[in-house]
Simulated scan of single mutants.
Amino acid sequence: MTFKQLEYALAITKYGSLSQAAENLYISQPTLSEAIQNLEDELGFQIFLRHHSGMALTPEGETFVADAQAVIEQVAYMERRYTAHQGKKHHFSVSSTHFYFTESAFARLSKDLDGQYMLRHLDSRKLDVLNEVVSGISEIGVLSYTEENRMHTLRKLKSSNLEYTILRTLQPSAFFSSSHPLAKRKSLKLEDLRPYPCSTFYQGPATSRYFEEELCQLPEWDKEFVLQDNGAITFFLLGTDCFSIGSGVVPASIRPLGICAIPITDIPPSTIFWIKRKNHVLSELAERFLTLCAEELSMGIPQ
């Protein structure tokens, strides 16, 4: 059994087709077919079922491919860790729903790096965060669940072969400008916000309410803005008397802009957590980023 054969098996699993896998591996189809057949002969069981429409994993193949994925990720981790002195370019990607604290942690991460790097922070909707981690577009994802959607979220994580770790449980807060009429309040109830426009993030045309990122289901609201990203929300918070509901974490990096957060006491707490693929070994950059996220969560909550 060779490392190359493991890579071949994973490629066929990914593309579901011998020809497409061979094309993406830049080898001939007969070469790939022979390598997989030799591997199956050595193992003593079939990894794939061959169909006219493509190739599918056998039950034994599913277990084998999961182990192969773990081996390849471990080798990649060791290469990153022990060949860094050779001047390789650092790569790290994270997907997150719309949190100020992840953006602040990401900016701080970049200041710690020397040499070459490619860092990517994707502001995404909740289901997109899950899919981007599953597909490997991002190494980790940061998102949240409420008591209402907790079971649906955890069930989705399990079916997607993702692991999660809780960062913190927080009381949702209203974000608005420090010049807002409610900015001096110590706490709020939803009815206190009723006279003001509400800003929410666009969730797509057919997103189940269990996978929306909003931390509470607002009752029918008279005035609403539906926006795409944190930058747009921030602009509207500073330029109007609108509010948005979020984690309540205000990083030091955005406080000078005049953004504040006031807890809403009649909304249940929400839980912020991060995810990764099962058996994936985190890179040093991912571990550093998560440490910075924990710091931002601790420092960014108004006392």
Rank of each mutant, 00 (worst) to 15 (best):
L162G: 12
E132Y: 12
A232D: 10
V65K: 05
F243Y: 15
I259K: 10
L113M: 07
A11Y: 05
F176L: 12
Y82F: 15
C242D: 10
T165V: 08
H51S: 10
L32S: 09
N131S: 14
E60P: 04
L257P: 00
L18N: 05
E212S: 14
K223F: 14
T2M: 03
E103R: 15
P59Y: 08
E220M: 08
F48H: 09
I166A: 04
P59A: 08
H85L: 07
P181F: 09
E139R: 01
Q116Y: 05
G54E: 01
E79L: 14
A183N: 07
W221D: 06
K276C: 11
F235M: 12
P197T: 07
D128R: 04
E284G: 03
D114I: 05
K276A: 08
S187L: 07
D123L: 10
H180C: 04
L32F: 06
E213F: 03
E213K: 03
Y145V: 01
E191K: 13
S138I: 07
F176V: 02
F211G: 05
L113T: 06
P263H: 07
P172T: 09
T240M: 05
C293P: 04
E42A: 10
Y164H: 14
R194F: 03
Y210E: 10
A174H: 11
L10G: 01
S247V: 05
T2G: 11
D128C: 03
Y100L: 12
P197M: 07
N161Y: 08
N131Y: 10
F175I: 09
V281S: 13
K186F: 05
L285K: 12
R150K: 15
T265V: 11
A286N: 04
N24K: 15
F45P: 06
E295I: 11
F101Y: 14
V94I: 14
L193S: 09
Y82H: 14
R50G: 01
Q303T: 07
L227F: 03
L193H: 06
G16R: 03
L237S: 05
E79S: 08
T265C: 07
D41C: 01
R168F: 02
Q228R: 14
K111A: 06
S95L: 08
H85K: 04
K184Q: 13
L49H: 11
K89D: 01
Q116I: 01
S283H: 03
G115F: 03
L297S: 02
R108Q: 13
Q116W: 00
L122D: 11
Q29E: 15
Y202D: 04
N149M: 10
I12H: 06
Q116G: 09
R168D: 12
S244H: 01
G87F: 06
K186R: 11
A183E: 04
L170D: 01
R81G: 04
R81F: 00
E34C: 02
G44V: 00
G54Q: 04
A107P: 00
L285A: 10
A70H: 10
Y164F: 15
F176T: 02
E214T: 09
S33P: 00
R125S: 11
A76L: 11
K4Y: 06
K4S: 14
Y117H: 14
S19M: 07
H52K: 15
F273A: 02
N230P: 00
V129F: 11
E132V: 00
K189C: 08
P172Q: 07
F211S: 04
F92K: 10
E42H: 03
G115K: 04
S95E: 09
G300E: 05
R185W: 00
E23R: 12
C216V: 15
G231N: 12
Q46N: 15
R185D: 08
D222R: 12
Q37P: 00
